[in-house]
Design a binder for these strands. Sequence first.
DNA 1: GCCCAGGCACTCA
DNA 2: TGAGTGCCTGGG
Length: 285
Amino acid sequence: MKYSYDGLKTVLTDFNSFNIKEILECGQCFRFTKIFDNEYEIIAHGRKLRIIQHSDRVEFFNAGKQDFEDIWINYFDLNTDYDMIKQYLWDSDIVLRDAIEYAPGIRILNQDPWEALISFIISQNNRIPMIKQVIKNICARYGGDGCFFPQAEQLSNAAACDLRALKTGFRDKYIIDAIQKVLSGEIDLYAMNGYETDRARDILMSIKGVGPKVADCVLLFSLGRREVFPTDVWVKRVMEHFYFGGNKTGIKNIQSLAYEKYGRFAGYAQQYLFYYAREFGIGTK
DNA sequence: GCCCAGGCACTCA
DNA sequence: TGAGTGCCTGGG
């Protein structure tokens, strides 16, 4: 990886495994807007970033050298060797090869834990365009002038009916519970980096409306736990398709198989599989 | 009008 | 302990 700042933008060159479309549209984040093919606006960590991908370089607008080093390198997981990970997964199981080849530019973003928690609570029993809209509504109402994702403090005065007016639906009470647990200090998301994964998952699941799937998404996408394998309906379908002859099976069977086959890289495998499954509608016919 | 979507809580055997 | 059911909302 090489990068330089030209006074207007930071330009990333000599990179591998980076495709902005695949990164953003593999289901891990919600605050982005497509401007053109290979051009997106992303809002994260209190910044608005415009990003344009060319064949030989990626341009980060509104990102000075300091922001790039302090925020975006970590956010885009640029210090992780994806070639090594893909090679490991490629060797570990033949089923993954098509999925990796189909979207070799996927990366797992390192998002803010609070934003990830609320976003994935909203995601349950919901569609992606609707999830994006609800998050946008919350940011517009509580995120200040920049419409950034509001911290728990900024949401401290929100009542369930206020949230419901922003189209959260029945998830309003879940968001309220998350706000209360964080504000009271009962849960400190930013202290969970040092916890064992199982302990962190249990703590997350003590929040109303947070089950295994939402907890695993928070662990994978914002707490760096790349060994977890969030198993939503798409991942369940694709796993049943590839490993269980298209027959229904339980989440536990799927996850234990994933840990067995993909090991500490199960989270990455999940992303390749999810993207592949959705693009081809695997298991829906 | 009905069905369903990137789950979860709740109820009841 | 596991299966069944209802849930906001809006687009097909």
